[in-house]
Design a protein around this nucleic acid. Sequence first.
DNA 1: GAGACATCGTGAAGTATGTTCACTACATGA
DNA 2: TCATGTAGTGAACATACTTCACGATGTCTC
Lengths: 151, 151
Amino acid sequence: MKYVHYMTDTTVVLDRVLLLATLVQADLARFEREEGLSTARVHLLWVLGASGPTTQQALAQALDVTPRNVTGLVDGLVASGHVTREPHPSDRRATLVTLTALGTRTVDGLAASHADLAAKLFGDVDPGRLAVFGDVLDETTQRFARLMEKA
Amino acid sequence: MKYVHYMTDTTVVLDRVLLLATLVQADLARFEREEGLSTARVHLLWVLGASGPTTQQALAQALDVTPRNVTGLVDGLVASGHVTREPHPSDRRATLVTLTALGTRTVDGLAASHADLAAKLFGDVDPGRLAVFGDVLDETTQRFARLMEKA
DNA sequence: GAGACATCGTGAAGTATGTTCACTACATGA
DNA sequence: TCATGTAGTGAACATACTTCACGATGTCTC
């Protein structure tokens, strides 16, 4: 019967973070279903939207998968009309994976849906409290980075 | 040049939540590698640890996958010695998936690793600010639930 | 009891994501 | 030119998913 009443148990907090992330993940899954795309392919489109035309090697690094896997993902996205393989201007071995008009629309839609969700979730939170929230997130992320370095 | 200086953009906050979740996910992946288990199998073990011996149907519901898929996951976990299939005492159709000693050790280890990470991440945060953090998480999760209902 | 009908688990077959290994085509530096 | 490295892909495979069909039980009703 110690005073665990002030229940600021760190595990509970971590669980809440994970729960929120799971819910947001579910929202992303809804988007994917609507677009008829998989998580892996949307991830690739997202990276492509942020970086512009990219070689498959670079995509493999960004997605943290093997180059061979990127070949398969790009195959699917070419078939669905979201990207094309363009020749690299200076390296004839490489191809530049490039968003089509459809691919660009999809990425834009995802960004809009993401911003919309963020506004709905955090828009009504008092600015001061939201600032604390953001700061704690930031500190925690940095603490995590330091932990990983040591290990 | 509007005053976006006070950068409390909600999208940034959401991105930070997702980033932290991704990092925590990476820590879980490390655990999985060390134990030689996959995400799906660890998830099943975790549910089993929380619920005690469970039928495959119930596991399918809890994991939000098809019963057929649970069969495959349990097959793997039986082979690796983490669970056994016990006869259901009152329903001869069903089997009770049950943690072995090894399975229990694994779940305990995961729980310990989880609590340890939580303490490292949030243990040094000022209690008052951590309380605000937790509250905002809670409000946001509830807001999300309300959003889902309407849609 | 005897059917009718639902439920539990699994075989068969198929898809997507991911791996490793081997190979071809091209790039680059000595 | 010759050696060595790098970009992408074919082949083969593992895992996690799915749907559909089916046998074995449970359960409800007449």
